[in-house]
Design a binder for these strands. Structure first.
Length: 650
RNA sequence: GCCGGCGUGGCGCAGUCCGGUAGCGCAACCGACUUGUAAUCGGUAGGUCGUCGGUUCGAAUCCGACCGCCGGCUCCA
């Protein structure tokens, strides 16, 4: 019995394909490509006997990849049509869309995008088939003469082939549609009429091959989806992200600013932002105290020797502010990290094994010279405060310490309202690394065990650890599904060696401690920014700078409002009276724009009945609430750090 | 750092292409109204148009340098 290619349909029905025929003919409607023995292929692909064939729908991950890459081709084609002399480089599918890089005779402007978009849609209407051609490298070079980037890629492939690289043959594939052709592995949609819904989004510079010594190319970004609905949903998500942007909310809610006079990446916190920040820090301090941390304080500048010993000047100098030189020629640096200072505290006297694990904690402000182009709001700054701690343990204690540390980290992050995590574990890099194999193995094993006991997804980053020890990082997904790297826990076999740390063991001998670096927020600034976006500025009650606002209906109600506010403050609530001479409507609007959790309008009705209508910041009103009950409920909400507002309905 | 865009009262913007001496909304302040759950009405004040230099009789507008902000700079044809 002759073997035949088999096609697995989405309903898991398996049919046999006629041998020697392209897969396209037998495909279900709507299919744009196929996986043949696991490889993505065009519908024109002729499978070998015995091949396993699966259809690819446009809205699947594979389908979107094909769709986006095909859209990139059509965009490049449109650009070449409109700008003769354009050299095209690479144009892959990326998350949510695609890009293509060009070298153009004239600079491109955002105003040119609609023109390119129009041309792309014309090409779409022509239903130009995508045709795969297998040609020799020499022929490809001839066909793509005048395209230096493509020729460079072909040359590179030739070298790989000569080097015996697997999977590189003597031929390359070209994909042609209409007059335009590109060096490409494919696959593509059957023809240009099968593109989905797309939109060109932005223009940027990018180096050829990401190398800043190579030419700067013009990159055009676009987004592409299987349907108009999906595209609209994506654009809506972008708007939502923009609405939550902490830089914008920072201005609107009067939280912080970046005065030009101070300098790039250096934030000042205003009273409201300062209060939120203090609340965040206070809670963290309390929890650290309970968890057995000891609080230390260290200066912001230090003589250069300290960072020579630590090695920072050797491999981190680019990230440090330049030194200040004193009369005697002594150099001082702003500290980019707290670790060496904490180490000196450990080393200030002889340590006993009885003192370990020793946990030194500090909200330590450090300065890092981030390149001007990478500074971004509060999430990437030049002056930041780390919730930094260094734990000195014996080898034997390391396991338990790491385990309880991970529990502590996740527990604390949950209290701030983040609850969707995964963990990333970075293991020993190839080649040179400090520490013995046993130490690495134990560190990794404990971190892995701890991670698994947390019942969280664990992503391995094999060989991704720093040379001085394994690391686990906590990634958190926010309210709209974006992931942020939060906490890092880093085992360090190196610093204790560099600083020659030791402690007296039970055996009377000197032993080298192991050091664990950990920061839960990363930096207070960054954590502030992430929480602002996570909550879209509507901080939970315990973090809200103002919790309760009173709005008197007329001047004669103001006194009562002030009395109520005093009563609320006695219950530790942050209450404010808006006695400005504005209409009730305007004051309600102002309260809601500032995202004040609860607002109470106080007028004749309230004076008479003694009960109030509670309005939350979503605009939901509940009438007939007694003041005592309100205060009690809010105090409870704040005390429990509830992520949701109290509902006063019955 | 590099490429592109942008920089006009506290905030959001118009005016810039086609030089002729700065405008709107919100906020602020003053006054009237004493208000019932997202914007009451009227008035006042506030800007050497990012900075420095150049061209010009004249520059927010044209030219140059610098500063700052925004987006992008790993994702293999």
């Amino acid at each position: 019995m002759a073997a035949m290619p088999r096609l697995t349909l989405p309903d898991e029905k398996v049919i046999e394909l006629p041998e020697g025929e392209p897969v396209g003919a037998a495909m279900p409607k709507g299919t744009i490509a196929a996986r043949v023995d696991g490889e993505l292929r065009d519908l024109s692909f002729v499978p070998s006997a015995d091949a396993q064939v699966e259809p690819i729908a446009p809205d699947s991950d594979d389908g979107l990849h094909v769709l986006r890459h095909s859209t990139a081709h059509v965009m490049a084609q449109a650009v070449c049509d409109l700008f003769p002399g354009a050299k095209y480089a690479i144009g892959p599918a990326i998350e949510d869309g695609f890009y293509y890089d060009f070298e153009l005779p004239e600079p491109l402007h955002a105003a040119d995008l609609p023109k390119i978009d129009r041309r792309m849609r014309q090409i779409g209407k022509q239903n130009q088939p995508f045709v795969r051609e297998k040609v020799s490298r020499d022929e490809a070079r001839t066909r793509l003469a005048g395209q230096p980037f493509k020729v460079e890629i072909i040359d590179g492939l030739e070298e790989e082939a000569a080097g015996g690289e697997a999977g590189v043959g003597d031929t390359v594939s070209l994909y042609r549609n209409g007059e335009w052709a590109d060096l490409c592995m494919g696959p593509h949609v059957p023809h240009t009429g099968k593109l989905g819904a797309f939109k060109l989004t932005s223009l940027a510079g990018a180096y050829w091959r990401g190398d800043d010594s190579r030419p700067m190319l013009t990159r055009i970004y676009g987004t592409a989806w299987a349907s108009q609905e999906d595209l609209d949903a994506h654009l809506h998500r972008l708007e939502e992200a923009e609405r939550r942007d902490h830089r914008r909310l920072g201005v609107e809610l009067d939280l912080f600013s970046f005065p030009d006079e101070i300098g790039s990446g250096l934030a000042v916190f205003h009273p409201r932002g300062g209060l939120i920040r203090r609340l965040m820090e206070d809670y963290s301090r309390r929890r650290h105290e309970e968890a057995g941390y000891e609080f230390v304080n260290t200066p912001h500048i230090t003589k250069s020797d300290l960072f020579k010993t630590s090695g920072h000047l050797e491999w981190f100098a680019d990230g440090m502010f330049p030194p200040m030189e004193l009369d005697g020629g002594t150099e001082y640096y702003l500290k980019p990290m707290n670790c060496p200072m904490h180490i000196l505290i450990f080393r200030s006297r002889t340590r006993s094994y009885r003192e370990l694990p020793l946990r030194l904690f500090e909200f330590g402000t450090v300065y890092r010279y981030e390149k001007s182009g990478v500074i971004h709001g509060l999430t990437r700054v030049r002056g930041l405060t780390m919730d930094d701690a260094h734990i000195f343990t014996t080898k034997g204690q390391m396991g338990e310490e790491l385990k309880s540390l991970l529990v502590f980290v996740l527990d604390l992050l949950r209290d701030y309202g983040l609850d969707d995590f995964y963990l990333e574990l970075s293991t020993k890099p190839e080649g040179k690394a400090v520490g013995t194999d046993e130490e690495w193995a134990e560190g990794i094993e404990v971190l892995r065990e701890a991670a698994q006991s947390m019942d969280l997804e664990l992503v391995m980053d094999e060989g991704g650890g720093a040379f001085y020890g394994p690391k686990i990082s906590v990634q958190a997904r926010d309210a709209i599904g974006r992931t942020w790297q939060m906490s890092t826990i880093q085992v360090d076999f190196q610093m204790p060696q560099r600083f020659d740390l030791h402690y007296a063991g039970a055996d009377g001998e000197r032993h080298r401690p192991i050091m664990i670096h950990r920061a839960l927020f990363g930096s207070v600034e960054r954590f502030f920014g992430v929480l602002t976006e996570h909550y879209a500025g509507a901080f939970p009650l315990w973090l809200a700078p103002e919790q309760l606002r009173f709005v008197p209906v007329a001047d004669r109600h103001a006194d009562r409002c002030h009395e109520l506010a005093i009563a609320a403050r006695a219950a530790d609530l942050r209450a404010v009276v808006d006695d400005s001479k504005e209409s009730v409507g305007k004051k309600i609007r102002a309260a809601q724009l500032m995202k004040v959790p609860y607002t109470l309008v106080v007028g004749d009705q309230e004076l008479e009945s003694g009960t109030y209508t509670v309005r939350d910041r979503a605009g939901v009103e509940v009438a007939g609430v007694a003041f005592e009950r309100l205060v009690e409920a809010l105090a409870e909400e704040a005390r429990t750090r509830a992520p949701e507002q109290t509902s006063f309905g019955d």
